[in-house]
Amino acid sequence: MKFGKIIYITVVTLIVATSCTEKVDIQLDESYTRLVVDGSITSDTLAHTIRLTTTTSYYYNQPAPGVSGALVSITDGTTVFPLTETSPGIYQTADTVAGSAGHTYTLNITLKQAIGGNTDYKATSYLNHVSSLDSVALKFQPQWGDKGFYEVKVYVQEPPTVDYYRFMIYKNDGLLTDTITEWFVTDDKFFNGSYTNGAAVGYLNQSNPSEQLDQGDVVTVEVDNIGKDYCNFIWNTQSEIRGANPLFSGPPANVTGNISNGAIGYFAAYSCTRSKRSVR
């Protein structure tokens, strides 16, 4: 839970009222190429995906180049799940694999050609348990924005352990929160052990066609117990993408992930649970 965000929004609204923004040309240097790892293993039974790409110059203006021909596997210490490359840079497990809570998973990558001076990369992640949601509710707020917003609310007894959550929202099985900037992540510092009692975890803008809800539409909320490190990684990545201003932002800095040998990105293990609500 970041209270700063509310203040941020309030103050930035004030500033934006008087400020202007325009495109500028800034000359940038290029630094060396690094491996980028982005993927996870979850408690769902499905083909788990790891994406391998490389960094590019900032103004590259094309999709990130995939890294092909690598040997990729995930292990829980006893079983090894090999990953096969299904398209350039995308590696997947068999669709029968499911992670289980209480295990530590290790990702091993061996590249065909060295990137950033290394061919071998490794990451480990612990898979936490997650409590099942009691229910999900939708509350329409007609006065917000042009056509109103739906608040997506969750009801669950939060356990007394220290936990970190990510909330993902689906409309009719299509993931709405499909980029990292849209993920709602929070720690339980300010509500540890409480009943969440309808805390809002997402807002669906009814002026946006993809988020607009009609009668019969089904909204699904997925809750992931992601652990402290991944939560920090997401927060910090979100803040770097959002950009800096002189009031609230510390100096920009690369986000530390959990991949060895200076690679960028994160290999996450987490358990998830879901609950649905249809629009009436």
Binding site: L28, D29, E30, S31, S57, I180, T237, A253, Y266
Partner: peptide, 21 residues
């Protein structure tokens, strides 16, 4: 501190930065 590169993570472009300042 400005970016000297970029990476794609979680479907978004994340800056990779120069040395501090």
């Amino acid at each position: 501190t400005f970016p000297t590169g970029r990476a794609v993570i979680g479907g978004a472009i994340v800056p990779v930065y120069s040395d501090r300042n």
